[in-house]
Structure formats: structure tokens, C-alpha cells
């Protein structure tokens, strides 16, 4: 659960920086809806690398895997080194 809280906090900070002030639920679309762009995805990637130690160099990467807080959490669960 703490994983999802950290992701949730980060996404909300990112959205505020992007000038998006509407409430976002855990299943709301972020990428496919155009709320976040590729630069925001890069910020998210750096956050996930630093926070959860994920190495993206050998992962099949599709930015739509980050389409919602729920999906990001699922992605982290599947790729976090300690979980494998």
C-alpha cells in the first residue's frame, strides 16, 4: 500500500507542476487522455528508478503502462528488483 501512496503523491505533484488541478482517481487515464506528456513520463521514470530501483534498460517499455496510478503501481509490483 505504501508503494501506491508514494506513487499517488508523486503523480499529484507532477500534475500540479503541469498546471492540472482536477482530482485524479487511481484508475483515471493520464497518458492516453493527454493529461501527461512524454516529459512527465521521464520524470516518472526517474522517480521509479530512484524510489524502487527499477532498471528500465532491459524492460519492454510502453508509456501507456503508466496510464493510471493503478497501472503504475502494477508495473512497479512486476518490475521491482526485490519482488522478483
Amino acid at each position: 500500500m505504501s508503494r501506491e501512496i508514494a506513487i499517488n503523491d508523486f503523480i499529484h505533484r507532477l500534475l500540479t507542476e503541469h498546471g492540472y488541478d482536477e482530482k485524479v482517481d487511481r484508475a483515471d487515464s493520464l497518458i492516453l487522455s493527454g493529461v501527461l506528456d512524454s516529459l512527465a513520463v521521464i520524470h516518472l521514470v526517474v522517480f521509479l528508478e530512484e524510489q524502487f530501483g527499477i532498471d528500465f534498460s532491459d524492460i519492454y517499455f510502453d508509456q501507456t503502462s503508466f496510464d493510471s496510478i493503478e497501472k503504475i503501481s502494477e508495473f512497479v509490483k512486476n518490475h521491482q528488483p526485490s519482488s522478483s
Binding site: 512524454s38 521521464i42 521514470v45 528500465f56 534498460s57 524492460i59 517499455f61 508509456q63
Partner: peptide, 10 residues
Amino acid sequence: VEFFFYPTFF
């Protein structure tokens, strides 16, 4: 971004 930015950045 898909074919040049991400692969280099990662």
C-alpha cells in the same frame, strides 16, 4: 520519443 529518446534515456 519512442525510437530515439526513450531507448537512449534508459
